[in-house]
């Protein structure tokens, strides 16, 4: 989607009338991430969109107290078996369920290497939401270590940093793995893999230091703010991403694009600034009306 620009739309009252401004927003922690400060992400959403935010513990730990095995089975069933084919529903095998059970028991563990179908995974999460909070009045954004992907028109799955839906998921591993690193990184990696028989990841990364977000990167919180904003604006306006590469709602396919949008620019394009201001106003008015 890099370089793709969505035509600007008139943001009159007609558009905002269809928006779903949530009365509350819940962010869920990812205990596997050592550098993600979710309170700062929450503060950003409050500042930018005027939303009422609450930070809760890990989504699955919070809502999956009963029948963990059934949940582990449901999660395992969303695994992508072949990234070059559309999703195939296959009964998960015993060991896959056991693996998910172990992950549920140890939420601080981070095990990338498995790709899950994003929308099916969200469906599993949606079923866990408390009934009272299962409406568009409550925005749920879960931070997760699992890598979610979506099947695209080019006939293959792509890993995603964020999958917007209900709830939305920002993947802390996806932020590292989904946007491509500099092309030269892959060339060096391939050369060293051939010469050494293994990839000395740290040595390969060294010349490109700073050019991509790594696991436990200190810049993760700042990047996560942008993805949380993408999820929130999608929830409210149903508009996916922005075509302006300097806007935080730009969905970069390269790490360099992500860094430009989330860290170097760190702001919104003029159009989305207006959207954010309008959301902020609506949220404020709603809270005021509630008070009275």
């Amino acid at each position: 989607m890099a370089g793709w620009r969505k035509p600007a739309r008139d943001l009159g009252s007609r558009a905002s009338a269809d928006w779903d401004v949530p009365s509350s927003t819940v962010l869920y922690r990812d205990p596997s991430s050592t550098t993600l400060d979710l309170d700062k992400v929450s503060e950003y959403l409050v500042e930018t969109l005027g939303l009422k935010c609450e930070v809760r513990q890990n989504f699955l730990s919070l809502y999956a107290e009963r029948d963990r095995e059934a949940l582990a089975r449901a999660i395992a069933a969303t695994r992508v078996r072949n990234i070059l084919r559309p999703f195939e529903q296959i009964e998960p095998i015993y060991g896959e369920v056991q693996f998910e059970l172990r992950l549920l028991e140890e939420p601080t563990k981070r095990v990338p290497g498995v790709l899950y179908d994003g929308y099916r995974y969200l469906r599993v999460m949606r079923d866990l939401l408390p009934r009272a909070e299962r409406s568009l009045r409550v925005l749920h954004i879960a931070f997760e270590h699992r890598i979610l992907g979506t099947f695209d028109d080019d006939g293959r799955y792509h890993a995603r940093a964020v999958v917007c839906g209900y709830p939305s998921v920002v993947s802390t591993s996806g932020i590292v793995e989904a946007p491509a690193k500099p092309a030269a990184y892959y060339r060096v990696k391939a050369q060293l893999a051939l010469a050494l028989g293994a990839v000395p990841f740290d040595a390969v990364k060294e010349p490109f230091k700073g050019q991509f977000i790594d696991y436990d990167d200190p810049r993760l919180t700042e990047v996560a703010r942008g993805y949380a904003l993408q999820a929130a604006i999608y929830h409210i306006t149903k508009e996916a991403f922005c075509g302006d590469s300097a806007c935080r709602l730009f969905n970069g396919h390269w790490q360099a694009e992500m860094i430009t949008a989330q860290l170097e620019s760190g702001g919104l394009c003029p159009r989305h600034e207006r959207v954010a201001a309008e959301i902020s106003g609506l949220a404020r008015r709603e809270r005021a009306a509630k008070k009275h």
Binding site: F99, G113, V114
Partner: peptide, 26 residues
Amino acid sequence: AKRIGEGGMWIEKSEDAVVEHTGIAY
């Protein structure tokens, strides 16, 4: 039982996944 078959070699953390999946398969 069934095997899923090997996936592509695509990310840094594959080794972690192998260790974490080691266990009772049947």
